[in-house]
């Protein structure tokens, strides 16, 4: 994690600075964990990172992240959601906020904290009280009609990632249709097509994250809206 010292993007950060909080959500099996792992691999040498997961967290999941050499264990915190993954990222973000702040306190200063939601349906989105930006991950195997159906994840996320493009031909999904439909509901907000199998670094998504950090240095310098209520503030 030494990267943060020779590449500090926030030289004038006040002591209350905090990391950019990036949510990664999407339906079960769309590749959220794989994308999280890819982003960590791509960015860990230039950014100080930590991850909060909301998935059913078994030893297998931990092993997956470990095997992929993503981050050291103490930079990954699992939050359990009581069978309600959307509640934990939207309606009652207490446990996730707590996990994010604990990681920031333990590894201060962090540049980026990724909050990976548990797999849910198309209506799940992150609360703005929890994350600054959010990525919604779909995969083509869900069918090319999914973007047309919309839902808050598809329409309002800061970045829509359509994953597993390598399967498109196999299952007869038309990427052009998906791009057109997504564009129709998302306006200017970007859509990226990826195949983490073919591009395990998720280069385009990583570049988008770098852009967010460059263009929006302010949010992660300002105290979080809830910081005043945080228990560690004297």
């Amino acid at each position: 994690m030494g990267g943060m010292h020779d590449h500090d993007p926030h030289p004038a950060a006040p002591p209350v600075s905090r990391a950019l909080r990036l949510g990664i959500g999407g339906p079960v099996g769309s590749g959220k964990t794989a994308l999280t792992a890819a982003l960590c691999r791509s960015l860990r040498d230039e950014l100080a990172l930590a991850v909060v997961t909301n998935d059913i967290y078994t030893t297998e999941d931990a092993d997956f992240l470990r095997r992929n050499g993503v981050l050291s264990d103490d930079r990954i915190t699992a939050v359990r959601t009581g069978c309600c993954p959307h509640t934990a990222i939207r309606d009652d973000i207490a446990a996730n906020l707590d996990a994010v702040e604990s990681l920031e306190e333990l590894h201060r200063p962090l540049d980026l904290v990724i909050v990976e939601s548990g797999g849910d349906n198309l209506t799940a989105t992150f609360s703005r009280g929890l994350v600054d930006r959010q990525i919604f991950v779909l995969d083509v195997s869900g069918g090319d009609k999914v973007p047309r159906k919309g839902g808050p994840g598809v329409t309002a996320s800061d970045l829509l990632v359509v994953n597993k493009t390598d399967l498109a031909e196999l299952i007869g999904a038309d990427l052009a249709v998906m791009a057109r439909d997504a564009g129709a509901v998302r306006g200017e907000r970007p859509v990226l097509f990826t195949s983490l199998r073919e591009d395990p670094a998720a280069a385009a998504v990583a570049e988008w994250v770098r852009g967010v950090l460059r263009e929006h240095p302010h949010p992660h310098h300002a105290p979080h809206p809830h910081a005043a209520a945080s228990v560690n503030e004297p």
């Binding site: 939050v79 009581g82 509640t87 934990a88 009652d92 973000i93 707590d98």
Partner: peptide
């Protein structure tokens, strides 16, 4: 029970 204080994740 909708108080956002994390109670939903405790059984």
């Amino acid at each position: 029970s909708r108080l956002p204080a994390g109670g939903h994740a405790h059984s």
